[in-house]
Nucleic acid binder design. Structure first.
Lengths: 101, 101
DNA sequence: TATGCAGTTATCATAGTTGATAACTTCGAG
DNA sequence: CTCGAAGTTATCAACTATGATAACTGCATA
């Protein structure tokens, strides 16, 4: 379970209002990883099984799923992962919220 | 205008049924680039203006917008571009179409 | 024609992601 | 308790996206 880890991160990231803007940019990355994990579990696959499909190692899948946030994956990597769990991807653009609400 | 270039690509890519599968994986990348260009033009910005905002060069923006398809951008790069034109991004997952329809 | 703007392409160095291996922690089954 | 499955973390090499510079095309316009 990584729920606590994610929760901890959010709490820490949001603890100071000063870092809110940074969190805004970190948030999509975490939203993505949560989705990846959810899709994989929904498909009933282990990290190792996905690694096999993509001809790589389970450690790399683990890194992709909960990267250190200092690490931004390539679009093609996300695509391949999505393919392994049976999904296509699309990037959705939504008008940005004002920085000073 | 690069419309003709994109159209040419699609025509060529789809000309042989054998490469349809490859096109499936190339398609999201091209869909993305078309969106990037559309958003930039909608914002009334030039590549150079975006480059200034992101503290980089217009040549790099050009490369991002119409990459040679052998090149897959990082998620953070797309994020930064989106930010420059006033948008947030989100990755949408949709169940994969069957390979043999 | 000539000038400037917008975008493209090529190139190289740098930074960063990914591949691969190994050791480690949890945790549940036996 | 022991064992194996699942996942994590660290490390280094290999690969590749990005930063930066420069030269180029096409186009509008004066």
């Amino acid at each position: 379970m990584n729920r606590s880890t994610l929760t901890d991160f959010k709490k820490k990231a949001l603890s100071k209002a000063a870092v809110n803007k940074e969190y805004q940019s970190l948030a999509p990355a975490y939203a993505l990883r949560k989705k990846l994990i959810a899709l994989r579990q929904k498909a009933g696959l282990t990290q190792e099984q996905i690694a096999d499909v993509l001809h790589t190692q389970k450690s790399n899948i683990s890194r992709l799923e909960n990267a250190n946030s200092v690490n931004s994956p390539k679009l093609s990597t996300i695509e391949q992962y999505a393919d392994a769990v049976g999904y296509d991807i699309e990037i959705k653009f939504t008008p940005k919220k004002a920085h000073n609400e």
